[in-house]
Design a protein around this nucleic acid. Structure first.
Lengths: 145, 145
DNA sequence: AGTCTACTTTACGTAAACGTAAGCCTGCTC
DNA sequence: GAGCAGGCTTACGTTTACGTAAAGTAGACT
């Protein structure tokens, strides 16, 4: 799904707010899941009375979280990335350099993932080839009977 | 099923067997984990008496399993792929076609993963850029003092 | 024979990531 | 003003993927 460009319309989108139910439907999770992510420090929505109000920033965080989950990261790891994202510019030099190190580490993990995906795709190619061979030999059998 | 021809060296490798401890050390998991994978139908080692004997085929399965795990697949999903791999050529036409469908599905999942990785890499790039900006502005501050 | 070391089974424990149910509040809408 | 939809909290339940401990066995070394 393509993100809207930074136009007047985008500003509009940025001002939008969401209820927990809206977000849940949009990303196909339950409200319970969203509340759980908040409890785990991944979200921090505004409150109006007791009710949670989600802004676009929260929505992006949720999206990031679900992406991380699809890649097999734990919520703790995802929280780390999110906090990187939010606190990147503040901190002393030592902290910033440490952050760059962590970034390298995360990048390395993603590279490993890429390799794993390639390897798995090759396996799938292999299975598919054998499947197709079998199908072909079945149809040859049929032809010669 | 005709065993692969392979070279003398490869045959050597193929004839090697491993104890559970050897495999565990090699792949940095515990014996417990390996037994658990067997219990879940992911491995099926030979037995000599009570002791498990792992052949190269089992080792490859374990490798495949760990790869799947790194990608966030559940053991159930990995088992599905492994059984695809093992039973690809036997089955009637309907089964084979269904298998090709499942393959497409798995491939789609991997493609989604690739996209997720790209997106996350972009986020990391973003964080890194902001980090470097902050570092630069820190050093400018130092220079002007 | 005794002692390691590495294997085995059985079984209970645990962390992560939610699901599910109960009970309450609030703002419509008929 | 009764009901209903959707939000809230609290709390216990569940699945997955192992960890951990106890108790036993089998071969190798001293």
């Amino acid at each position: 799904m393509p993100e809207p460009p930074a136009s007047a319309a985008a500003r509009d989108t940025d001002r939008r707010t969401y209820t927990i139910g809206e977000l849940a439907r949009r990303y196909e999770v339950t409200p319970r899941t969203i509340r759980f992510y908040e409890q785990e420090g991944l979200l921090d929505p505004e409150r109006r009375g007791q009710t949670r109000i989600y802004h676009d920033k929260d929505r992006v965080r949720l999206k990031l979280t679900l992406r991380g989950k699809r890649l097999g990261f734990s919520l703790a790891e995802i929280r780390e990335v999110i906090h990187l994202y939010d606190h990147a510019p503040d901190g002393d030099e030592r902290q910033l350099r440490r952050m760059l190190d962590i970034l390298d580490e995360k990048r390395a993990a993603l590279t490993r993932q890429l390799q794993d995906i390639q390897a798995l795709q090759n396996e799938l190619d292999d299975v598919e080839a054998r499947c197709r061979d079998s199908l072909a030999s079945l149809s040859r059998q049929r032809a010669s009977s």
